[in-house]
């Protein structure tokens, strides 16, 4: 089975975000970057699928050359090869999907795994866009998956329940927490990763379809007010909720 995993390098979830002078982007200085947490589930699921059904796992990213580090991590986890499509700009989801779908065609994958969203823009677009461009089936936010010879069954949470989606391969699966427990690279894996192929090629994404007008700090929340201590404060709370917030 030809398995492709799309991964992205993003700021760690606990990093401070300083808005840059242009008021449209953030200052990457001093920000710690990591493999998108949901992409760890994607890599793990690809490796599990390969272990069960055989095949090759390729990891691919579109980003700056700094992403080599994250691709090496994926190789150390057990992926066979990596592709880095370099670009210095900030392509939007549509542009990213266009580049990745085009390159995917060369690999003719049976399965493409993505994260359910990248935790920078929390967009959740690249997976379903790539699927649509390639004419592949797609299941998003998947938390349990079974792969057959040329079919899949994927489960996802919906409001008030769960649903099971059945479809044909090739397919794009976007991975949600709960799908698996991502493995840590061991020393042997880290050593082996150094010798695995990591191909680099420059990419020229098409124009963005959304334009960033502004990046701003979130609206200030009203000044917090500690009403008091212990059960005695409950009366004050009820009064505030009824008469000030008017939510009761």
């Amino acid at each position: 089975m030809e398995i492709l995993v799309l991964v992205k390098r993003v700021p760690a979830t606990d990093s401070q975000i300083k808005i840059a002078a242009d008021g449209k982007s953030y200052d990457a200085q001093g920000v710690e970057f990591v493999l998108n947490p949901y992409d760890e589930f994607a890599v793990e699921e690809a490796l599990k699928t390969k272990e069960a059904r055989g095949g090759t796992v390729t990891v691919m990213t579109l980003g700056t050359s700094a992403a080599q580090k994250d691709l090496r991590t994926c190789l150390a986890m057990g992926a066979d090869k990596a592709i880095l499509l370099t670009c210095e700009d900030h392509p939007d989801s549509a542009a990213v999907a266009s580049v990745l779908a085009e390159k995917s065609k060369e690999l003719a994958p049976d399965l493409i795994f993505c994260g359910k969203q990248a935790v920078d823009d929390d967009a959740g677009q690249v997976g379903p866009r790539v699927a649509t461009l390639l004419g592949f089936a797609c299941a998003t936010d998947v938390n349990s998956l079974e792969i057959g010879d040329d079919t899949f069954a994927a489960t996802r949470d919906i409001e008030g329940g769960r649903e099971t989606i059945e479809g044909k391969l090739p397919a794009v699966i976007t991975c949600q927490k709960g799908l698996n427990e991502p493995r840590y690279p061991n020393l042997k894996g880290i050593m082996a990763a150094k010798k695995k192929p990591l191909d680099e090629a420059a990419a020229t994404p098409p124009d963005n379809k959304v334009e960033v007008v502004a990046l701003e700090p979130p609206a200030e929340r009203p000044a917090p007010s500690i009403l008091g201590e212990g059960a005695a404060a409950v009366t004050t709370l009820i009064d505030k909720l009824q008469n000030e917030a008017k939510v009761l």
Binding site: P11, T13, I17, D121, V212, L215, P218
Partner: peptide, 11 residues
């Protein structure tokens, strides 16, 4: 965006 640490305006 960024887990609510910023708001992005897009057109």
């Amino acid at each position: 965006v960024f887990a609510g640490k910023a708001i992005k305006q897009l057109r």
